[in-house]
Write a protein that binds this DNA or RNA. Structure first.
Length: 415
DNA sequence: TCTGGGGTCCTAGGACCC
DNA sequence: TCTGGGGTCCTAGGACCC
């Protein structure tokens, strides 16, 4: 008995959601019909394309490129600032709608979901009809279009949803691979990015079909385990389950690109403290502790480097983690102006299975204080309490995280 | 007014142990 | 005397995804 998996992919997600919202707000022009993008704030150095309309795509505007370069391609380009909270809401509404078609819906990303349609025919008909029903209901009830890909596993369903866009249903079963997937350029395959594609093409492997018939041992010697993975994918082999439970947290981090390069140690440390506050609050919110603390820095020339340390006991307090963050920073920073910094935590443990240790108690009183502060922030807002060192510093006490358009980070100088 | 943020997984190489 | 081999753990960096 074979599985039927759907992959639902919102067409130009951020841009579609922005367009729908603006129409609802009474705006006349539909962003989807004109060359437009959702893009970050250039003054705060977040000026990249986050999503593009289909007319913008005709100008060869790419997701991730700078707004500066996008405007060179299309001077009349309309740029809309992002509204992440709105997009989260749209995503949740779509998930709710999909849950009416199957109890097993996996939230894969803000704009992509898998739905296990196996054994659902008796309720909603054959897969293609059900997919059309889903697609059309999303359009009618929520106002945006999606592609639905249907396949025997998640990989082929995802590849199917990526075929022709927008507002389409495609199937991609094993017997259809030769016609629908193998002629595509190898970089269209999930998990073949630009680096791998370049290596493959250098060896004359240009299409997914070429990859499918390449000798596995050759791919292994070229790309190690990743070579075997993409060889399987090129042949439609993938068997992970659609899972609607939450994935266990492996690590979490927050980073920020600053509006100005940071040159002083004092300012850098304050920003790191601010990032530490943000990420540790998230850690504690999940009732987690971490053993590995990592910082990463991107300097003014875009050169990136990182430094990490594993501590003996899993910790979660702002102070204990910041102490390590500070050490790490002082060990690697060589005075070069900083564009971006991040703090990331991994090797995560849940508090309930804590191995009690003599040293863990050091963190206990701090943790109580943090808990109190976390609760105040949750109840009265993130600005209700903050460390006095941030007062008049020009630095946000909680740096990092997604930034909505009305909430620009403003880091000038502490002097 | 040029280049985001949040993730996961893998590998190379060094330290260290027996 | 002149250079093992296996194993684990750790760090830094890089690949990929959205």
């Amino acid at each position: 008995m074979s599985n039927i998996i759907f992959h639902v992919d919102v067409n130009s997600a951020y841009l579609s959601w922005e367009a729908v919202h603006r129409l609802q707000m009474g705006e006349e022009v539909d962003l989807r019909q004109i060359p437009s993008v959702v893009g970050g704030n250039e003054k705060s150095r977040h000026g990249i394309v986050l999503a593009k309309s289909i007319p913008a795509k005709k100008y060869n505007i790419q997701t991730g490129e700078t707004l500066f370069s996008a405007r060179l391609k299309c001077p009349e380009l309309v740029v809309a600032p992002p509204r992440y909270h709105l997009y989260m809401k749209c995503s949740q509404e779509m998930e709710k709608l999909l849950n009416r078609y199957s109890p097993n819906v996996q939230f894969y990303s803000i704009d992509e979901m898998f739905l296990d349609y196996t054994n659902m025919e008796k309720h909603f008909g054959d897969p293609v009809s059900a997919a059309h029903s889903i697609k059309n209901r999303i359009k009618e009830e929520l106002g945006f279009t999606v592609n639905v890909g249907i396949g025997p596993n998640k990989l082929l369903a995802k590849m199917a949803s990526d075929l022709k866009k927008p507002d389409r249903v495609h199937t991609l079963f094993h017997e259809e691979m030769a016609a629908k997937m193998w002629p595509l350029s190898v970089d269209k395959l999930f998990m073949v990015g630009s680096r791998t594609a370049k290596k493959l093409k250098a060896k004359g492997i240009n299409t997914i079909g070429d990859l499918a018939i390449t000798d596995r041992s050759k791919l292994y010697s070229m790309l190690k385990s990743h070579g075997v993975l993409i060889h399987n994918y090129a042949n439609g082999i993938e068997n992970s389950k659609v899972r609607n439970d939450l994935m266990p947290v492996k690590g979490l981090g927050n980073s920020s690109t600053f509006a100005f390069d940071v040159c002083s140690e004092k300012e850098a440390l304050m920003l790191l403290l601010s990032l530490t506050e943000t990420v540790t609050a998230r850690l504690r919110r999940g009732d987690f502790r971490a053993k590995v603390i990592k910082i990463h820095i991107k300097d003014k020339d875009f050169y990136s480097f990182s430094h990490q340390r594993k501590v003996a006991t899993a910790i979660s307090s702002t102070d204990a983690i910041y102490k390590v963050v500070k050490e790490l920073f002082l060990e690697i920073w060589h005075k070069k102006p900083i564009r971006k910094m991040g703090v990331a935590l991994s090797d995560i443990y849940t508090s309930d299975c804590e191995q009690l240790s003599f040293w863990a108690e050091e963190d206990e009183s701090k943790r109580e204080l943090d808990k109190t502060i976390d609760n105040i922030r949750m109840r009265y807002g993130s600005k209700a309490v903050f460390r006095s060192c941030f007062l008049h510093s020009g630095i946000k006490p909680l740096e990092g995280g997604v930034i909505d358009s009305e909430d620009y980070p403003m880091v000038s100088s502490i002097l």
